[in-house]
Amino acid sequence: MQVVLENLPQILEGLKFTVYYSIVAIILAVIFGLIAALMKLSKSSVLSGFASVYIEVFRSTPLLVQLFFIVFGLTGLLPLNEWFGQRSYPIIAATITLALHEGAYISEIIRAGIQGVDRGQKEAAASIGMTEFLTMRYIVLPQAFKRMIPPLVNQSAQTIKDTSLLAPIGIIDLVYRGQIVIATTFEPFAIWLTIGLIYFILIFSVSQFAGYLERRLQLDNR
């Protein structure tokens, strides 16, 4: 207990990064996911083909391998460390990789949301002369987003879990800080327990929030 309290500032410093990477990754992932979903639904087979390849590649390989490949593998091909900086490239690359990984799942959530909008809504929009773009922007997406909020919040919980894989590639987060603290205190049980607890509180509250939103949205079903 004493050990945990003494090292809590260090651990919470790690938590700060975990939260920070999660937020950035989720925001980027929604953007990537939206682009991929729209590409996949587009009439152009080239665009939808690209989107399918992206989605399948990122869903069918482990995140850890994706991280190693993009953060370390690609530097064997291109002088990325020079372009982006020795210290910042791994952080940028890891965040984007995490976002691409989550984006692949989010694109499927968004696609299902878009396809779940009643066809009559699109036809009504078309009948008053709205273009496909206007229809998507003002009619389909606003209705789809409501439906998508609970699964998106769930995916955010998943993203928080996935940030723990940033530690093995040397990026400071909750897990990474924990490992450092253990290396100096030799108290793996107490520290891992604390870290587990922090993750639990964080992720449990997010998924409870998703459940709450789901119930709310069912109530006012607009």
């Binding site: 009559g120 809504q121 036809e123 009504a124 929009a125 078309a126 009948s127 002369g129 606003p142 607009r222």
Partner: peptide, 16 residues
């Protein structure tokens, strides 16, 4: 379509 209005059996008002 701006010049051709349409009403549907199911109304299809924009729900949101």
């Amino acid at each position: 379509r701006q010049h051709v209005g349409m009403c549907f059996q199911q109304f299809n008002l924009f729900k949101h």
